[in-house]
C-alpha cells in the first residue's frame, strides 16, 4: 500500500504486463486483473485503467465502470495503513459510530480521506463477520475487537511509532 506511482513506475508496469499476460486468455478475468493491479500500484489511477483497457481490448468505459462499481477498488492513493471501522448492524448497535468519531477526532480526517503524511486512510466498511467481537475495526489485516472510543488513541499511536522507527532506520542506513 501507499506506493506512489511516480516511483517504481516502470517496474510496476512491467509487473502489470505479467498480470495481464497471465490472465488475458481466460474468460471473465477483468476483476481479477484489477485486483492484482491494485496490489501492485496501491490504487488504480486512470493511467493504469487506460493501459488495461488497451491491452485487453475492452472499452475504457467498461473498465472504469467496474472500478467504480466495487468498493474494493480505489482511484485515489491510499495511506500506508487503511483503517476500516466496521459498520455492520452488530457493530452499529454496539457503538461503531462512536468508534468512527474517535478515529476522526484523533486523526482529524473524515471518511474516505487520507492523512497529510499518507500514513492513514479512514473508511467505514461493510460487515467483516466478526460480529461476536463488536464493535470492531481493522487496520490493514489486523482486527481489533470489543473496542471503546478510549482504545483508539493508543492503537493508532502504535502504528505511528512503528512507522517512525522504520523511518529512522531507513535514514541511518
Amino acid at each position: 500500500m501507499g506506493i506512489r506511482i511516480e516511483k517504481n513506475e516502470q517496474e510496476n508496469f512491467r509487473k502489470l504486463d505479467e498480470i495481464i499476460e497471465r490472465y488475458k486468455n481466460q474468460e471473465g478475468m477483468l476483476i481479477r486483473i484489477l485486483q492484482k493491479s491494485q496490489e501492485v500500484f496501491g490504487y488504480l489511477p486512470v493511467k493504469v485503467q487506460a493501459y488495461i483497457s488497451e491491452q485487453l481490448n475492452i472499452p475504457i468505459s467498461t473498465v472504469n465502470g467496474v472500478v467504480t462499481f466495487y468498493s474494493l477498488f480505489n482511484e485515489e492513493p491510499q495511506g500506508k495503513y487503511v483503517i476500516g471501522v466496521c459498520m455492520g448492524t452488530a457493530c452499529y448497535v454496539k457503538g461503531a459510530p462512536e468508534i468512527l468519531d474517535a478515529v476522526k477526532d484523533e486523526l482529524q480526517i473524515e471518511e474516505e480521506e487520507t492523512t497529510m503524511d499518507r500514513l492513514f486512510t479512514l473508511k467505514s466498511t461493510r460487515c467483516i463477520g466478526a460480529c461476536g467481537l463488536a464493535p470492531v475495526m481493522t487496520i490493514n489485516d489486523e482486527v481489533y475487537g470489543r473496542l471503546t472510543p478510549a482504545d483508539i488513541p493508543p492503537i493508532l499511536y502504535q502504528y505511528i511509532k512503528t512507522h517512525k522507527k522504520a523511518q529512522v532506520t531507513n535514514e541511518n542506513e
Binding site: R32, Q35, G65, Y70, S71
Partner: peptide, 25 residues
C-alpha cells in the same frame, strides 16, 4: 475461486453471475 470486490447486490444470483464473468454486478 472468484473473489468478490465489495458489492452487496452481488449476493443476488443474476448479479453474482455478472460479477463472476468480470463485469459490474
Amino acid at each position: 475461486i472468484r473473489l468478490g470486490a465489495g458489492a452487496f447486490v452481488c449476493g443476488e444470483e443474476t448479479a453474482l453471475i455478472k460479477s463472476v464473468m468480470g463485469f459490474r454486478g
